[in-house]
């Protein structure tokens, strides 16, 4: 029996595949939500997938209880979250094509053991789901919120890891077609979300270096999130301000501007998104960022 994914091998994919990653705390989920909202506003049909486990995409899309089955969270925008058991089940049914009469239960349990022990298997199943959605050809864009830079790199490396461990078999074949999609610049776009601060910038640079050395995916774009906008005064004007909160806030602002530009100068920024002052909820943050993206 020909596995379903072979039917897609060599087929032109018309869906954009956007993978969003970044150091924890940089605002990956907010940026993912904003990218999805912005595309949906332009009339695209978009699937946003949360592979993480933090506050996550759901809160930023004002749909806190996302499930494995995609639900429409606003016009044209569907969202889902990774649920390991459901993904395993789907993987088994649609990808592994267990022969008729085979002991599905045994194979499910076997797969469960592998997910907990064998390198790459958990990752293949996680990153596999968004790619299956891509292959369906029903979305204009599939946008994925991935957990962290480290986790993201293990997704990218998973196909090779698996090839090293197993010489043959369905998982291996399926893993190599995943690798092709991930490395294909006409389909896949990788976005690393950073903040203009030491650890996020250094970790982003390290990740880019590793990704480029291994040719695992197209060159990532950098979204510099939480960039405090210039206030429009300079350090030599500080002495004109009387002592008190106005001057303190001005000093704080200038220290941040200086620190930011030090770290921004270390990296090529593709898109800069603002630090949103006084914005309270994740949903508001995502909408503001989507407005920023639209205005470009």
């Amino acid at each position: 029996m020909v596995a379903e994914f072979w039917r897609y091998a060599g087929m032109m994919l018309t869906t954009d595949f956007v993978l969003v990653t970044g150091k924890g705390g940089t605002g990956k989920s907010a940026v993912t939500a904003a990218l999805a909202i912005e595309r949906a506003r332009r009339g695209q049909s978009v699937l946003a997938i949360d592979l993480g486990s933090g506050l996550g995409l759901g809160a930023h899309l004002r749909a806190p209880n996302l499930r494995y089955r995609p639900t429409e969270v606003r016009a044209g925008l569907w969202a889902m979250t990774m649920v390991r058991a459901a993904a395993l089940d789907e993987y088994l049914k649609t990808q592994l094509h267990v022969p008729q009469g085979a002991p599905t239960k045994t194979i499910t349990s076997a797969l469960n053991v592998l997910v907990d022990t064998a390198p790459g298997v958990r990752e293949i199943i996680s990153i596999g789901k968004p790619v299956f959605e891509l292959w369906k050809g029903t979305w204009d864009a599939v946008i994925v919120d991935t957990p962290s830079l480290g986790q993201f790199q293990s997704y990218l490396r998973a196909p090779e890891t698996i090839s090293d461990l197993v010489p043959t078999g369905t998982i291996k074949r399926q893993a190599s077609s995943l690798a092709e999609v991930l490395a294909d610049p006409s389909t896949t776009q990788v976005i690393i979300v950073a903040n203009p601060a030491e650890l996020p910038v250094l970790e982003t640079l390290e990740a880019i270096e590793a990704i480029e050395a291994e040719h695992l995916c197209p060159r990532p774009s950098i979204v510099m999130n939480r960039t405090v906008r210039s206030a429009g005064f300079t350090a030599d004007q500080l002495k004109l301000l009387p002592t008190g909160p106005i001057k303190e806030a001005a000093e704080h602002q200038l220290s941040i501007e200086a620190l930011q530009s030090r770290w921004i100068s270390e990296i090529d920024v593709d898109v800069s998104l603002p630090y949103l002052m006084g914005v309270l909820t994740p949903g508001e943050v995502a909408l503001h960022l989507a407005d920023e993206l639209s205005s470009r």
Binding site: T106, I107, V166, P167, T168, I171
Partner: peptide, 12 residues
């Protein structure tokens, strides 16, 4: 054995 064949090699 069948599970191993489906999953690949001698993974299990």
């Amino acid at each position: 054995r069948l599970a191993d064949t489906v999953l690949g090699g001698a993974m299990l």
